[in-house]
Amino acid sequence: MTIWDLPKQSRAQISGLNQNISSDLRQRLEEMGFVEGQIVQCMKRTPFKGPLVIQLQDCIYSVDKALAEQVQVNAA
């Protein structure tokens, strides 16, 4: 399951990033808080498969489908 599959208002725990993303992007995402064990909450979904709004620790991010599908989560 990835962040993209999270229903609205639900929480999950990040289990890792997909293997196929570049190492630079991986590092950046980790620095932005996408690290294993971190709790994410899906705050909003927008219509027509638009970007998600997620809360990750102290930040609220908006991420599009392409990115959300790269982050694996375990339902918490």
């Binding site: 992007l25 970007p51 930040c59 991010y61 908006s62 991420v63 599009d64 392409a66 990115l67 790269q70």
Partner: peptide, 8 residues
């Protein structure tokens, strides 16, 4: 191209 990620 980079994916879209924006801090609110």
């Amino acid at each position: 191209d980079l994916p879209f990620i924006l801090e609110l």
